[in-house]
Amino acid sequence: MIAALEFLDYDFMRRAMIAALLVGFAAPAVGIFLVQRRLALIGDGLGHVAVTGVGLGLVLDRAPLAVALITAVVGAVVLELMRARRTEIADIALAMLFYGGIAGGVVLVSRAPAGGRSLNQYLFGSITTTTNMDLIAFAVLAGVVVVVTAVVGPALFAVGDDEEFAAVNGLPVLALNLTLAVFAAFTVVIAMRVVGVLLVSALMVVPVATAQLLARSFRSTYLLGIALGAGSALAGVVASYYGDTPSGATIVLVAVGLFAITLLGGGARGLVGRIGR
């Protein structure tokens, strides 16, 4: 093995690389539709709700990821239904759900046998502890997310662009928005093992934010966002190995660094030429 790739000699690093790649692909594929709707931070909210699921799983001694997935999906559906109804209290209700979610998780974890130590890996990510079973779950979830967002992408784009026009055109607006919310929950649950709940939105938003600086169409933003997400995740894992830094935070710093370089490169559009379709 080439010396520079020595990290691939370790099973845990190979698993970490695969997990990073899966999250790097899936997060921007969902994130672009959230950013389009100006819901970039909803991933953070769902992450908070998922913490309660983790706590519940630890207390009940059931798979925390599975319980977190169920909790996040329920939270996503409730959030979307409240948004659709546009009630005056929707904003406050969202805040209650977010704060209640993380507070509930902290309290539940304190009652779990493993205590707070377990919570840390969900708050800050713990990609190097990824198991083969985790990888299978990540692969299934990421596969579903990428395939479905690609298949119904034009309809999701239409609804995000103009809900009224989409409704007149016969598209099932609520069903599509619920699908997106549920997929955001899927992505949050995968990503929280990789980058942690506190940074869960970063991989959904930052690669897309970088891509939109360079691209001139929705399609090219989508493809470039996925490439940047996967690239940032892989580069972050490798950098964290050599720098002995937390992997989740390193991945996010790589993604933010790419955004800063693109932005400061400034006239990247003019100099490099805009990426067309």
Binding site: I32, V35, Q36, R38, V152, P154, A155, F157, A158, G160, D161, D162, E164, F165, A166, V168, N169, G170, L171, P172, L176, V208, Q212, A215, R216, S217, F218, R219, T221, R277
Partner: peptide
């Protein structure tokens, strides 16, 4: 339907062709 709003409020760029193509979904289905 042509609503009153302007279309360019999203932070993600989209081309004119991509915008107009959404009108075709009423024919093709999603």
């Amino acid at each position: 339907y042509v609503p009153q709003r302007q279309p360019s409020t999203s932070p993600i760029p989209s081309t004119l062709e991509e915008l107009v193509r959404t009108g075709r979904l009423g024919r093709t289905g999603m």
